[in-house]
Amino acid sequence: MQMHSLAFDISHTLAGGLVLISFMMLYQDRLYSLLNVFALHALVLALSVAWQAYVQDAPHLYVTAVIALVFKAIVIPVALHRIVKQLGIHRDIESAVGIGPTMLAGMGLVALSMVLMLRVTADADPLAREDLAFALSVVLLGLLVMVTRRNAVSQVVGFMSLENGLVLAATGAKGMPLVVEISVAFSILIAFIVIGIFLFRIRERFDSVDVSALDDFRGERR
């Protein structure tokens, strides 16, 4: 029993840590520091997945953990660093909403996901249900990062943190098949985004996503 509760506490701490780091992303106002925080996010995810692999005795999850570590904690942040430097993107992040309201909204979302998930999964085993509640919080906070930030790199970072939440949910669901495949599919998706930014060099995108400029392209402004 003692062992079980220790396992429980550790995975709890790691999942809670992910939610906390998601909050840290909400108030970063520099691109580089946002990328560093994301690398930390991915590192904690890798630890969490590895821990689940150990606890559930599911060796295939180690593959997922390694993908998270190598790809998301190292390769992507480094690549994005270089893109930011080479393209000379503004290093301050313009946010659409102030930090105060964003943090409040974040707390609201976490409370919402806790209430929803804990109530819905009353019968499931405690580890899975709390994992799921944390995962949903991370997903929603990732969405919040995406909608409150205006430039493309921070939208990508928001999407990747959202995706980390999904991997957390998938590993928490004991014995779920295809976890490795799904994490690979997602990594390809992210690679596409990063390559897309790099090759297409949508430089204008980085400075602003001005919706009124979009109307011009559509030829629909009167």
């Binding site: 999964t121 499931a124 899975a128 799921l132 995962a135 949903l136 997903v139 969405l143 995406m146 999407f159 959202l162 995706e163 999904l166 949910a169 998938a170 669901a173 779920m176 799904i182």
Partner: peptide
């Protein structure tokens, strides 16, 4: 984002 939400739903169905 749509596809991420769908994946979360898929995980819940599995749960």
């Amino acid at each position: 984002v749509g596809i991420a939400l769908a994946l979360f739903g898929t995980i819940l169905v599995y749960m």
